[in-house]
Amino acid sequence: MILKVDNLVKKYGAVTAVNNLSLEVHKGQVFGILGPNGSGKTTTLGVVMGVIKSDSGSFSWFGENQPQKARGQIGTLLETPNFYPYMNAVDNLKVVAHIKKTAQPKIDELLEMVNLKDRKKSKFTTYSLGMKQRLAIAAAMISDPEVLVLDEPTNGLDPEGIVEVRNLILQIAKKGKTIILASHMLDEVEKICSHVAIIKKGALLSVGGVGAIINKQQTVEIGTEDQTQLNALLEKCTFIHSFSPTKLGYELVLKDEFSAADLNKYFFDNHLVLTHLLVKNRSLEQEFLEITQ
């Protein structure tokens, strides 16, 4: 057992930020906490990291009741990367290593991993957001912790930065580390996490393996000039879960593990050319509606 949260409650005045939340994170999991902005993700992580005081409920790290000792063994990136702006990357990491009591921090190695070696002597204040975020990940890794707590690690990054950070997280996860990741982006959780808890207004909606919780079916919109042949092929197709008509043609929900490419190939093999093929990203909003129903 890495983390156990029991009936956690945190109120800000009349607003209940975390409402009776219980969670369990086990070793080796990449545990996603998914929820829209303001759903209590950061507050929950703030409580278990000792910076926010809960009103009731409890939590324990590593099955022990020693949160202060535990924090030394966890790498954390909560909300924004927090460093001393007048200090360079190396000096900032030295401060982190000093607090963590890491005797010989592998600062150069870490900076290489996050691709900041060339800028290691530049002041933190001169860094771009992506560089700051990467430095924060290096800082979280400095004591080679068993557990990483990451809150919106790709927030505010450009697409390239997002991919870099996600690959970094996957790379770390492969080493068998436990990662707790809060995100409001469904596809991020889907791509990275093994387990997910979905929270809304501070309350837990559902929890379990990613495959079991998040619907992996893809939604595709298609259109063609030959409506009758399309209808016939749709009836025969084996990997369509359901379909409904739209202005341009049909909206199809594919069965698990099938993609738009399979669909396109199927029609092409059957001598039907599509004039319109659109893969629809399911919004978190829709996903929530499905889960809550």
């Binding site: 910076v51 924090r71 001393y84």
Partner: peptide, 11 residues
């Protein structure tokens, strides 16, 4: 700099 918060989280 929010480093008080970060120092505490760091351990």
């Amino acid at each position: 700099f929010k480093t008080l918060r970060q120092n505490i989280m760091t351990g």
